[in-house]
Structure formats: structure tokens, C-alpha cells
Design a protein around this nucleic acid. Structure first.
Length: 318
DNA sequence: CATCAGGGCCCTG
DNA sequence: CAGGGCCCTGAT
């Protein structure tokens, strides 16, 4: 595949609402790595497909501000940037105020120290709704290695490779591109029965059955209802989506089996406790149940970077 | 070699 | 509302 050089660069500085934890927001160690982004301490590169253009973004931590370089193939019109800026603020959650969470729970027993350690950590969407749903579909009923392989196969078939700031990264694609593909064509990419799901879901986006920007203005229950209409998206995916893409911090309703095992060990030091018991544990953090889960979860995976946690390694099936 | 489950969801009865 | 089937892969 031909690599596209993104030669034009435009820089800006934006100020996220403090406290904003750059590294804990741009990098989520529990997520599996993918070739559309790279994180290094204080720096982050990711590709973005926005209004028909393939962009490279570089973010740099400048204390209270974040420097953003937008790379593109051709120079970008003013209007384009004017439009892109609020989208970046949304995707990287620059404006959500979570100070009440900190104030309410900074001295709570198991959670306090973790909150103080990761102050300013928030959910981050990073991708468009369509892209996020693609990721969720490859996650379903698969181990991490296979999810990763499926996503890379999709990148290679439908996305591009772009080079900017000496990094070559994959991009996602617009739904119109995948729509032209057939179910059989997708099966060659080893996505298995998800081929049908990907096609159906993509068609729903091409037909504009769903509008991510309208959804952002709706209530949790309204979003849930609309998203569940999408083919291949069920309760487990919605549960993740409400937090990761729409930033609802409360209403924890589902603990997937994999998380159940890990929280059983982490919170109760037992092999497997009922999901109900774990859900009950998190009720004490109302109305920040999901954010509390996020802090405990990511803290564990940050630890894993430099510490071998035997029981955890067994649960992370590659 | 066979069998099974893995960060679910759809469809059927 | 419960349960079978689904692609593919690696573990057992």
C-alpha cells in the first residue's frame, strides 16, 4: 500500500479544563495497541479521518496547555479548522468537569489514593462513533490477539497509511468505502461471522440512520435506545460506549465476565465472586460508579507496565 | 487428534 | 426469556 505524506502542518494550543492528566488521558494501558496511534510520555500521535480528509495529529503536553500539530496532504481552509477544533476538544474531553468526583472521594478508603495518583484522568473518545463501534465489534467474543489482528487487517484493506512527523500510521476509513465491500470480501480478513455485522453497521452509517452529533446532546437512556438499534451492538457494547464515547460517569449495570474475574481478585481476593456483588461494591461511588471503575482498572494496567502480576497475566489471554 | 472458550449478539422457539 | 449457533485461533 502506498504511504501518503502529510506535508502541511498547522499548530495550535488549546487549554483543557484543569485538572487534566495528559498521559492518563491519551494513553489507556488496558486498551490493546493499534497502528493508528502511538503514545510516549507527554506526546501522542493519532490519525483522524474528518470531512473527507486524512489527518495526522500530534499532541504535546505543555503543562496547562496542549500543543496540537495538525498534519494534512493539502493546506487546510480556515473553516475546516474552525470546525475541527471543537471536535478535538470533545474527543479528548477537554471540557468535562470532574472536580466533584475528586472532592467527594479523594479520602475514601480503597479509592482515595488511586484518585489522587491519577487526578485529572477522564474517559477519552479519541475516535468517531463509527470507528469506536468497529473496535467494539472486533472485540466481541475474541481474545486480544485476534481482535488486534482483525483490526489491522481492516486498516490494511480499507484505511490508508499516512506519514507525518516521522511516524507512519494507519487510518480508519469512511463508511462509504467499506460499504462497497461484500460479506465474502470481509471474511477474507478473518473477521468471521462479524463480516455481516460490519456490513450492516456500515450501511446504517452510510444511510445516516444515526447522527453522532445529535446523540451527544441526548440523555443516557435516549442514547442507549438509539444505539441498541444498530446491528451487532448489544448491551455490553453500549455499556462501554456510554462511558467511553458519551462520557456518562454513572450507572454501572454490567460487569463482563473478563472484568468480573479481575475485580474478584482485586477487590475480594477471590477467584470468582458473583457479578452482582461487584456491582454492589461500586454503588458506594454513586454518581461516579463508572469513573471509579475506570480509575481502579487503568491503575491496575499502569502497574502491569512495570510490575509482573501473576494472576492478572493469566486472565489476559493473548 | 478433538474440544473448548474467548472483553457478545442475533435469532428462534 | 433461555439457549444454540456463529468465524477463527490458541490452549488444553
Amino acid at each position: 500500500m502506498k504511504t501518503e505524506e502529510l506535508k502541511y502542518k498547522l499548530s495550535m494550543e488549546l487549554e483543557p479544563k484543569a485538572p487534566y492528566n495528559f498521559d492518563a488521558n491519551f494513553h489507556k494501558p488496558s486498551h490493546f495497541p493499534s497502528s493508528d496511534n502511538i503514545w510516549r510520555k507527554g506526546k501522542y500521535w493519532i490519525t483522524m479521518v474528518w470531512k473527507g480528509r486524512y489527518l495526522g495529529l500530534k499532541f504535546e503536553d505543555k503543562k496547562n496547555k496542549i500543543k496540537i500539530d495538525v498534519y494534512s496532504k493539502k493546506s487546510l481552509p480556515k473553516e475546516f479548522i474552525k470546525d475541527l477544533t471543537p471536535e478535538l476538544r470533545y474527543r479528548f474531553n477537554f471540557d468535562q468537569d470532574i472536580s466533584n468526583f475528586y472532592n467527594q472521594l479523594k479520602n475514601e478508603k480503597p479509592l482515595g489514593p488511586i484518585i489522587r495518583k491519577w487526578e485529572g484522568m477522564k474517559p477519552i473518545a479519541a475516535n468517531s462513533l463509527y470507528e469506536t463501534l468497529i473496535i467494539y465489534i472486533v472485540l466481541q467474543n475474541a481474545t486480544v490477539r485476534r481482535s488486534n489482528q482483525m483490526l489491522e487487517n481492516l486498516f490494511n484493506k480499507f484505511g490508508k497509511k499516512v506519514k507525518f512527523d516521522n511516524k507512519t500510521l494507519s487510518t480508519f476509513w469512511e463508511p462509504e468505502i467499506m460499504e462497497k465491500s461484500s460479506e465474502e470480501g470481509l471474511r477474507e480478513l478473518k473477521v468471521g461471522y462479524r463480516a455481516k455485522t460490519l456490513i450492516n453497521l456500515t450501511k446504517q452509517f452510510v444511510n445516516k440512520d444515526i447522527d453522532e452529533f445529535k446523540l451527544r446532546k441526548l440523555s443516557r437512556e435516549e442514547i442507549k435506545k438509539d444505539i441498541l438499534k444498530l446491528y451487532g451492538i448489544g448491551p455490553a457494547s453500549v455499556e462501554y460506549l456510554l462511558f467511553e464515547d458519551f462520557y456518562f460517569l454513572d450507572a454501572l449495570e454490567i460487569i463482563p465476565p473478563w472484568e468480573q474475574k479481575i475485580f474478584s481478585m482485586l477487590l475480594f481476593n477471590k477467584k470468582l465472586v458473583p457479578a452482582k456483588k461487584i456491582l454492589n461494591f461500586f454503588k458506594r461511588y454513586k454518581p461516579y460508579e463508572k469513573l471509579a471503575v475506570h480509575y481502579i482498572w487503568e491503575d491496575l494496567f499502569w502497574k502491569r507496565k512495570h510490575e509482573h502480576i501473576e494472576w492478572l497475566e493469566k486472565e489476559i489471554r493473548l
